[in-house]
Design a binder for these strands. Sequence first.
DNA 1: CTCCCGAATGACAACGATGTCGGAGATGCG
DNA 2: CGCATCTCCGACATCGTTGTCATTCGGGAG
Lengths: 416, 416
Amino acid sequence: MTHDERETAEAAAPRPRARLIDVAHAAGVSPKTVSRVINDESGVLPDTRERVQAAVRDLGFVPDRSARALKRREADTVGILIDAISDPFFAAFVSVVEELAVAEGLSVIFASTGYDAARERTQLDRLTGHRLAGLIVAPVAVAAATLAGLRTRFPVVSVDRVRSGIDAVVIDDFGAAAEATAALIAQGHHRVAFMGEDVPYPTVSDRLAGYRSALEAAGLAFDPRLVVTHERFGRGEAAEASRLLERDDAPTALLCATSLAAIGTVRAIRAKGLRMPALISFGDFTLADLLEPGITYVDHDPRLLATAAFRLLRERAVRPDAGPERIVVPTRLVPRGSGEVPAASADADELENFGRDAGTGPHPVHGSASVAPPSTDLPVLAEPDPSLVATALSLTHPEPTGAAAGPAGASIGARP
Amino acid sequence: MTHDERETAEAAAPRPRARLIDVAHAAGVSPKTVSRVINDESGVLPDTRERVQAAVRDLGFVPDRSARALKRREADTVGILIDAISDPFFAAFVSVVEELAVAEGLSVIFASTGYDAARERTQLDRLTGHRLAGLIVAPVAVAAATLAGLRTRFPVVSVDRVRSGIDAVVIDDFGAAAEATAALIAQGHHRVAFMGEDVPYPTVSDRLAGYRSALEAAGLAFDPRLVVTHERFGRGEAAEASRLLERDDAPTALLCATSLAAIGTVRAIRAKGLRMPALISFGDFTLADLLEPGITYVDHDPRLLATAAFRLLRERAVRPDAGPERIVVPTRLVPRGSGEVPAASADADELENFGRDAGTGPHPVHGSASVAPPSTDLPVLAEPDPSLVATALSLTHPEPTGAAAGPAGASIGARP
DNA sequence: CTCCCGAATGACAACGATGTCGGAGATGCG
DNA sequence: CGCATCTCCGACATCGTTGTCATTCGGGAG
């Protein structure tokens, strides 16, 4: 237990954080030399270098990020503002972003809005108080102008929700909902219901619009009574679902705009012994394949969105002036049984046998080209498949105005 | 569009971040006065104050956290080091910590280890590079001494895994596993298997020890062939499970030390049409109640752990010298059907009807007193029930050495 | 009218690191 | 032997903010 100290000696039990100058004293060199060593700069004799490194170890010195960032005017933290980290979608999203960020030596700081506008404002200030290398945000109520203001200081990428003038990575909510609805109609269903969150996000309204569009394309009338909403955070989904399915004119098919709605529906069906309608959900969820029948869903892979968002963010760090882009990540309909219930069968009571034998028949795939296997079986995510990302990035659209080329591969992989 | 600028004028398109001094110039006051305004200090005329606030708004000024932290020598960021944010357990954990931190005006920065020792080291440095108000860590391989070193600079709380000399919040792995195993044995099972991760965590070995202990208490021989492990991140769980259950001498009951193992087991059973053994899992997971039969599990609520950990962290910020404590959060066995399969029935093939009628009978509850309802139905977490936390905190044990009183309510709720 | 006092504000240094620049030796070459 | 050159290293200023202390100004008391 060696300890050498100079000058200050008032530190006793609560040993203060070692500073660079303490290391300098311990090693008998100037602060600048310590700085050179810890930053791997050249021009230090091997001997000196080792002496400094020893002092660093002895004192447990870790450079103060605040001071370093201040002086270097360098931002090495990526901010993420999302709805809630407890949402598996965002958990997976953040996980991938962190993975990519770490590979570049960046830190990740996140904040959640809880879907609350005021809190979003607070959290945004909290995040921007840090020097950011960029901000990835799933905007709730923040004005596009506010984000545009931030964009003059660091790259800003919007995820899942579009904001004009801001780079965005989204899925084709309208198209995917239309595709899913059409698939239900193709099974012979005439009464298809829609269940979504009671929030004013375009995500929801676009899905609703896609649903309507598919109904109209099939010559079916839009019936407002078949559209139900559920509150966030509430237990409302199950209640809404049973109310819907217990009606005399209950639908035979249901499109759920969120996986929460689908889960609530299944729960209601189980609790009340209701008849299982044909069901398609947005967003995969753990174990969806193990229910009976398995839940057919529109795949909306957070890993793809995260990878695309991060790459775009880093691309903007290099070319800040390129016009805002909108990247549409492909989705696809994954058949697992619940969405393939034919209308005829829905009237009978023979729904037991959809668990295993479904999911094999060919089914329309939405999005371009074929994409990778479903992500269900990866509760803990590994690295996203690069080929998926390439696909996603190649779908780059320039925003209405602006003529940027697709983002090239931003340099990924700094020193470890 | 008003804009008054002095001195510097070289800023054009990529408007740099506004500094405090820019605000001062714009408002025609000194930097110190701006500082006073943004920090709500007294001694500023209402008139002046408003002028400054207007300038702050105009310029979109947000104080630089680095500079502020540097000068104030104040830490307002809580670091969290966990295995993986994509693990729903840790996602929920982090969510709660963030909630509590925000209430105190603290930021949260997290990093994940991916169960990798080298990466853990890197991430630890990344986190400690920030000025931390405290660190919550689920240690992988980091030495207790290293954490003890950090502890001299800020509070450190270990979660889920114990490290000597460090405050810890854990569950009673041994006791919970013993309880679960005993419950299986009580159903008449003689061949009870154990499946856990192939990692050297005490979490796993303690559960294994608890399992052995229960076997011995029941006079059953411990059979190493009934203990199987699965790799992390792999798809190994399902493969291991089918190998185990397809054996001639397959067990009639299975205790899974992780929910991954339980999920893999169910998946294997479905895929291969195997017979369902009595099954108890550690850790709840979404939809466990909707499978058929529902999965009986040992509840291990991340919200309780998070709340206890955060409170302990804040308590230590006030009283850093108090000896390390070990808080044991109670667990309980939640019957849902799969764990109540009697041994007799396991030999017959009538396993269809366990979905709904299970989960009602009384069953041993592990932990003290009665605790709250299961958390299953809250995929997106609301605030944890304070009463639960009270229960958890009251179970405080001092570590072998050290005689601290139970943590009092650390001051929560700073200025908004 | 002068002096004193408090309220409002500003000047200045410092937090911990690093960029710039210059200086001390060592070496090479004519 | 003198001078240029190169290597290694340190002095100093500075990043954006705030703590400390000084200064100014207006007004009331004597």
